[in-house]
Amino acid sequence: MSFLTQLRQLVAQRGTTPTRLADVVGIARPNLTTTLAGKHDTRGSTLEAIAGALDAQWVLVPKEHLAAVQQVLEGRDAGPDRAAKAAVDLLLEKKP
């Protein structure tokens, strides 16, 4: 998933509008729109400001970790089930 795709998805998830986001970042709405469309090269500082306004962080991911990060971003992380009861809790439940 491309950076711009992730950025557009985050804008939608946060429920903000391009106008509101542009105001927070301090750029003109047409400039934000062309940035989100990928129609011009955008400075890193602008991307950093957009990410900050969306309560996110712009990071580089080494290729050897990219597959794991993509799984997390897609909600397919195979991490621990934090809602599952611990073994000790299950053991204590069995006691009369």
Rank of each mutant, 00 (worst) to 15 (best):
M1F: 14
S2E: 14
F3Y: 12
F3R: 12
L4C: 07
T5M: 15
T5L: 15
Q6I: 11
L7C: 10
Q9D: 14
L10D: 08
V11T: 09
V11W: 06
V11M: 13
R14D: 05
R14Y: 06
R14H: 08
R14F: 11
G15T: 01
G15H: 00
G15P: 04
T16L: 13
T17N: 01
P18S: 15
P18Q: 15
T19Y: 08
R20I: 07
L21T: 07
A22Y: 05
D23P: 01
D23N: 12
V24T: 07
V25R: 06
I27H: 06
I27E: 11
A28F: 10
R29N: 08
R29V: 08
R29P: 04
P30V: 06
N31C: 08
T33Q: 11
T33G: 06
T33Y: 08
T34I: 13
T35F: 11
L36T: 03
K39H: 15
D41E: 15
D41G: 15
G44N: 09
G44W: 11
T46V: 11
L47D: 07
L47T: 02
L47R: 00
L47M: 07
E48R: 02
I50W: 05
A51K: 05
A53Q: 08
L54I: 04
L54H: 11
L54M: 09
D55Y: 02
D55T: 03
D55E: 08
Q57M: 10
Q57D: 13
Q57P: 04
W58D: 12
V59H: 03
V59G: 02
L60I: 10
P62N: 01
K63E: 08
E64K: 05
E64N: 02
H65M: 05
H65R: 08
L66H: 11
A68M: 04
A68C: 04
V69D: 00
Q70C: 13
V72K: 02
V72I: 07
L73H: 09
L73F: 03
E74K: 08
E74V: 03
G75L: 00
A78E: 08
A78Q: 05
P80F: 02
R82M: 02
R82D: 01
A83G: 02
A84V: 00
K85A: 09
K85D: 00
A86G: 02
A86R: 03
A87M: 13
A87C: 10
V88A: 07
V88C: 07
V88Y: 08
D89Q: 08
L90G: 08
L90S: 06
L90C: 10
L91V: 12
E93Y: 12
K94P: 09
K95Q: 13
P96T: 14
